[in-house]
Write a protein that binds this DNA or RNA. Structure first.
Length: 876
RNA sequence: GGGCGCAUAGCUCAGCUGGUUUAGAGCACCUGCCUUACAAGCAGGGGGUCGGCGGUUCGAAUCCGUCUGCGCCCACCA
């Protein structure tokens, strides 16, 4: 047995054991005959740094993986990072800007060189940080979504879907991010209610009559792109306009008045300006009415020469100026305040500009159908299942996925254009050349021009659970899985946030269905969002997110892990507060000190076991078994925080506060060997139970319990199993504990020192067997018969406990206490009797329930009798 | 605008298909204790008419309806 320090020092212990685990490659997994248990990490952005959300997510992942490992499974947690194309590219652009370099001035290759340098420099910091948290990832398997093999998988997938006719190229209205200079998918647009104005603008008739109509618009800067004015054909108010032409204000271009049912007669003035280039609905109206498309906003969100006015100005600057000009020109009727939803880019927070452009799309109908079926059939379980509804809704209304991005950082779209504008899709340039030559025989490599765009990041991350094992599999449904893939796939559980349920989870299911014919995981545990005490989402801009590494340094990783888990039921948001981490630290201290106590005992081999110790061992053994059963059940339902709380209470309240107090020898006395052995065994089991949550302190203590050898670890110890449970004994013991609390209560109330011996008389169903427990925990002598003189009495269940207090008690105080209790009991009895007097109740309720009520009645009566007796005795 | 979810102690939550001594836990709080493992601790204690109203039932925190207040998702009525 090793010396144990007075205080637990997490910093030193954590680094030591993490290095030990790595040195022994305990986290590494290879396929073998054991049952696999697999988790793939939700890959964080390669240039990201650890935040509290990661802490929560990865702690949960680590708890699951460590638990599985101790359950004897071959546990494999695959780590890695995501290239996060738009997020990373914008960071690189910002960094270059700081160096005075503009992206536009670089070639693609030059830019990518910078980007890779950045990735090498900052990439993987977050993976280093995860080590501080204790994450037991198989680092040998670390993957990056843009590494060559995984990129190849992305390309194969693209080609596969293209050849199946699921990927197409087309001109569509897309969500344009004018800051990121790229299209983004519908899912990357966040709508927020935004205060703006509704501008009422007069459009004069082209016939010079001076008549005009008024339209309401939120976007006056787009009027120069108007192609028509539209009214509802059923709208009587505007019948006079049918077939007329009006002039676009400021530019005086003539446009027709058209009729379309789309127009809502109750909104605004019932007249709509149609701007096909800059509004999705207008675009559709334009298609129906064959209207010209006039684009006046460029990729940067500035007005171009086609606008004729405010050329070169940013769209919001132009808005102000156009309004001024309208006013001056007499075209502005009035302005009203108006709040409407505006789309923002998830990544850059820029206001999304609907923009017509040529993009690549993946047809979602059939994929979404499969993915919906996977969840509805229960093959993939969402935890909690409240997300089923939104999942279904999304799957049923999903649009085709815009997968092209006008960026450089990412997998470049494998399409090559021929000089005549036609294109071929192929995995390599060589193949593309062959394909192209089938179209035009004389094509040379120099004639081919590869598409400039890259693929959406999610187009690579949706392959993650497959490609991390076998990058050949995606894109090749007939591929024979390699050893890793066939062993580890499907993975078991996925822990992630609900915010990427559709971005990522749903699409992984689609990819799994498509290429493996099997869902990529069984359970999806959706965590909440980590918020601060005030309920605000943790964010860098608010500055309300602590640095997890600071917390780890201050409290220890185990404390941080426990603190995060304590308050994290699945799907609910987490209200982070540092006090939770303090609680974790305190628990570490408790565990530490309990072992300090036990390890300090001297053992006397031949000594007989005190009765209190024998009972304590029997009790804790049963309680441990029962709790292990409960904990297993809670884990199976992913009720991690409840499982943790059960172990926490078992350790602290039951083992430390009760068990150790019962078996603790008097100061300087030795402990008998039986008790000692049991105490150590219990402690070791408790360490194993809590190890998945608190890996460091448990390893430290487990290692110090006896001489261990290199290569031994608590990590691979088996989860303690539950033995038979003597429920009757546990109940009897619980009753005794209540008696102890009652006696302690009287001591506190009467200010009687804990060590002052007391005689206590018991009447009723209290097992005499447990008297030694009472005696040790409450410092009393248990007596039979009737007490003489002053007593203070209380009732537990149907046991009357009378504490003999000759000379110590104040009768009037005792009387009022007893009277209050009597009144409470009478009220209770009355309630029970009211129920029993109800004929309907007796007739309709199940017999067992009625019997239960009768038992309550009888118990209450006996308690009342006992209390009355005590009061009568007091009166004497 | 549509859909989903949530309202239980000061805070965070349990309470599964209605009946287990007239609601539980952790934290916080209050009162005693520096009792030789631990003051980051020990012992004790207070605190909720289970959001409002109505209904079903012998019986409702638990089921149904409705109202109120939150949260989330979806949706570009200009």
């Amino acid at each position: 047995m090793n010396e144990i320090k007075a205080k637990y020092n997490p910093a030193e212990v954590e680094d030591k054991w993490y290095a030990y685990w790595i040195r022994n490659r305990f986290f590494h997994s290879e396929p073998d005959s054991r049952e696999p248990y697999t988790i793939v990490i939700p890959p964080p952005n390669v240039t990201g740094i650890l935040h509290m959300g990661h802490v929560l997510n990865n702690t949960l992942n680590d708890v699951l993986i460590r638990k599985a490992r101790m359950d004897g499974k071959n546990a494999c947690w695959v780590p890695g990072t995501d290239h996060a194309s738009i997020a990373t590219e914008s960071k690189v652009v910002a960094k270059l800007a700081g160096m005075g370099i503009r992206k536009e001035d670089l070639t693609r290759d030059e830019f990518l060189k910078y980007a890779w340098e950045w990735k090498e420099e900052h990439g993987g910091i977050i993976l280093q940080q995860l080590r501080k948290l204790g994450a037991s990832c198989d680092w040998d398997r670390t993957k990056f979504t843009m590494e060559p093999a995984l990129s190849d998988a992305v390309i194969s997938t693209f080609v596969h879907f293209y050849r199946k006719g699921l990927i197409y190229r087309g001109v569509r209205m897309v969500n344009w991010d004018p800051v990121g200079h790229t299209a983004v998918s519908d899912e990357e647009v966040i709508h927020r209610e935004t205060a703006s104005h509704l501008y009422h603008v007069k459009y004069f008739l082209a016939d010079g009559s001076g008549k005009y109509l008024t339209i309401a618009t939120t976007r006056p800067e787009t009027i120069m792109a108007d192609a028509a004015i539209c009214v509802n054909p059923a709208d009587e108010r505007h019948k006079w306009l049918h077939g007329k032409k009006v002039l676009v204000p400021l530019v005086n271009r003539e446009i027709p008045v058209i009729e379309d049912d789309y127009v809502d007669m109750t909104f605004g003035t019932g007249c709509l300006k149609v701007t096909p280039a800059h509004d999705i609905h207008d675009y559709e109206i334009g298609l129906r009415h064959n209207l010209p498309v006039l684009e006046i906003i460029d990729d940067h969100g500035c007005l171009n020469e086609k606008a004729e006015v405010c050329v070169g100005q940013d769209r919001f600057v132009a808005r102000e100026n156009v309004v001024k000009m309208l006013q001056e020109a007499g075209n502005l009727d009035h302005i009203e305040d108006y709040t409407s939803p505006v789309g923002y880019s998830e990544r850059t927070d820029a206001v999304i500009e609907p923009k017509l452009s040529t993009q690549w799309f993946l047809k979602m109908d059939s994929l979404a159908k499969m993915a919906l079926e996977s969840v509805e059939s229960g093959k993939v379980k969402l935890i909690p299942d409240k997300y089923m509804g939104t999942y279904r809704h999304w799957m049923e209304t999903v649009h085709d996925w815009c997968i092209s991005r006008q960026l450089w950082w990412g997998q470049r779209i494998p399409a090559w254009y021929l000089p005549d504008g036609s294109f071929v899709v192929a995995e390599t340039q060589q193949e593309a050349l062959e394909e192209a030559r089938k179209l035009q025989s004389g094509i040379t490599p120099a004639d081919l021009r590869q598409d400039e765009d890259v693929l959406d990041t999610w187009f690579s991350s949706w392959l993650w659970p497959i490609s991390v094992f076998d990058a050949e599999a995606p894109g090749h449904p007939d591929h024979k899985p390699n050893r890793d893939l066939s062993y580890y796939y499907p993975t078991n559980d996925l822990v992630t946030g609900p915010d990427i349920l559709f971005f990522w989870v749903a699409r992984m299911i689609m990819a799994g269905d498509s290429f493996m014919g099997e869902e990529p995981f069984r359970n999806v545990y959706l965590t909440g969002i980590v918020r601060d005490k005030l309920g605000r989402k943790m964010s860098k801009t608010l500055g309300n997110s602590p640095d997890p590494l600071d917390l780890i340094a201050k409290y220890g990783a185990d404390a941080v892990r426990l603190g995060m888990l304590l308050c994290s039921s699945a799907g609910n948001d987490i209200f982070y507060d540092e006090s939770q981490i303090e609680q974790g630290r305190n628990f570490c201290g408790k565990i530490w000190n309990s072992w300090r106590l036990v390890s300090g005992w001297s053992v006397e081999e031949g000594a007989s076991q005190p009765e209190a110790s024998r009972l304590a061992v029997k009790w804790f053994d049963n309680l441990l078994s029962r709790t292990i059963g409960d904990v297993e059940d809670l884990y199976s339902k992913f009720r991690i925080s409840d499982a943790l709380m059960a172990i926490y209470k078992l350790f602290w309240d039951d083992y430390c506060s009760c068990y150790l107090e019962l078996v603790k020898p008097s100061f300087g006395e030795p402990v008998d060997a039986h008790t000692y052995e049991a105490t150590v065994t219990f402690f070791e089991k408790l360490l194993k139970l809590i190890h998945p949550v608190m890996p460091f302190i448990t390893e430290e203590l487990w290692q110090s319990m006896e001489q261990r050898h290199e290569g031994e670890t608590i990590m691979f110890q088996r989860t303690p199993s539950a033995g038979p449970v003597d429920a009757a004994f546990l109940d009897a013991f619980a009753l005794a504990q209540e008696v102890v609390m009652g006696i302690r209560g009287i001591r506190a109330q009467k200010k009687i020192a804990p060590k002052q011996p007391l005689d206590v008389y018991f009447e009723g169903a209290l097992s005499e067997e447990l008297y030694p427990v009472l005696s040790k925990l409450a410092g009393i002598k248990a007596c039979k018969g009737t007490p003489e003189g002053s007593v203070s009495s209380f009732i537990v269940g149907t046991v009357k406990c009378s504490v003999s207090l000759e000379g110590l008690v104040d009768d009037s105080e005792e009387r009022s206490r007893l009277e209050a209790e009597l009144a409470r009991q009478k009220g209770f009895l009355e309630g029970v009797r009211r129920k029993l007097a109800n004929e309907n109740f007796v007739a309709h309720a199940p017999e067992a329930v009625v019997a239960g009520e009768r038992k309550k009645e009888a118990d209450a009566l006996s308690r009342i009798e006992a209390l009355e007796k005590s009061l009568a005795a007091l009166a004497k």
